[in-house]
Each structure stands twice: as C-alpha cells, then as structure tokens.
Simulated scan of single mutants.
Amino acid sequence: MVDLDIEVPHAYDPFAEAKNSDAPGTKEYVHIRIQQRNGKKCLTTVQGLKENYSYDKILKDIKKQFCCNGNVVQDKVMGKIIQLQGDQRKNVSQFLVQAGLVQKEQIKIHGF
C-alpha cells in the first residue's frame, strides 16, 4: 500500500469567533419563568445568572424587597436556579436591571 501524508481537517466551528464577541445574539440570557402549582399557586424561576454571583445574597434581597419566600435549587443540567413564591416575573426583571446584574436585553420572560 501507498503511505500518503494527508492531513485530515479537524472540525471547524464557524461561530467560534462570534461566541467571544459582544455582537447581538451571542450573549447569555437570563430566563425568568413561571410554573403553575396547584390552584392559584405558582412559582417564579430565575435561571442563567453568572456562576460567580452569590445566589444567596441575591435571593435574600429579592425576598426582602418583594415580601415573598424562595430558595436556591441546584439542578444537574441547568445549574443553580432561584425559585420564588408567586408571580414575580416583572419584579425580578426590574430588580436585576436596577442592581446592575444583567442588562435589559439579556432578560427573557416566559409564561402565560
């Protein structure tokens, strides 16, 4: 057999440069969702905050300002998630922007 010196190209990611830039559409989003429990009860979940933030301090400030209860849940896939009692979607989004944790364009609000 003939021994050929052919180099097989490696997988090329065309969006590798875009992930590192600040171009629109490449940023990480903070997702604020609502989940229906039983009856009128519901939960608000906040997912996607940076890992270097202190989730306990953020939760403490949110609970104090909006008079609701909540906790931090560790999920295998999603990472840390903040859960709050009641429909706090608008309140939490305004709080995160005013505190300077995220920009308004980085927040996605989901729910009915």
Rank of each mutant, 00 (worst) to 15 (best):
K50C: 01
K90R: 15
T44R: 09
Q74P: 00
V8D: 02
F66W: 07
M1Y: 03
K80C: 02
H10V: 11
G100V: 10
T45Q: 07
K50A: 08
A11L: 14
Q103Y: 11
E28R: 15
I6Q: 07
L43E: 01
G25C: 11
K64L: 13
K76N: 11
D5P: 03
K80S: 08
G48S: 04
N38Q: 09
Q36W: 03
S93M: 12
N38T: 13
Q94H: 12
T44S: 05
K108R: 14
F66N: 01
I6G: 01
P24Q: 12
F112T: 04
R37W: 05
K63L: 10
Q35R: 14
K19G: 00
Q85H: 12
V8F: 15
K76I: 12
F112W: 09
A99Q: 14
E7F: 08
D5Y: 10
Q36E: 01
I58W: 05
D5L: 12
L49E: 00
L59Q: 01
K90D: 05
Q103P: 01
Q103R: 13
Y55C: 01
N69L: 12
E7C: 04
L4H: 08
A18M: 15
D13Y: 10
E51Y: 11
V30R: 07
L101K: 12
I6V: 15
K80W: 02
K76W: 10
K80P: 00
P24A: 06
A18W: 14
G25I: 09
V77M: 04
V30H: 00
Q83L: 15
H10E: 15
K104L: 06
V92F: 01
K90T: 13
Q83D: 00
I82S: 00
K57L: 09
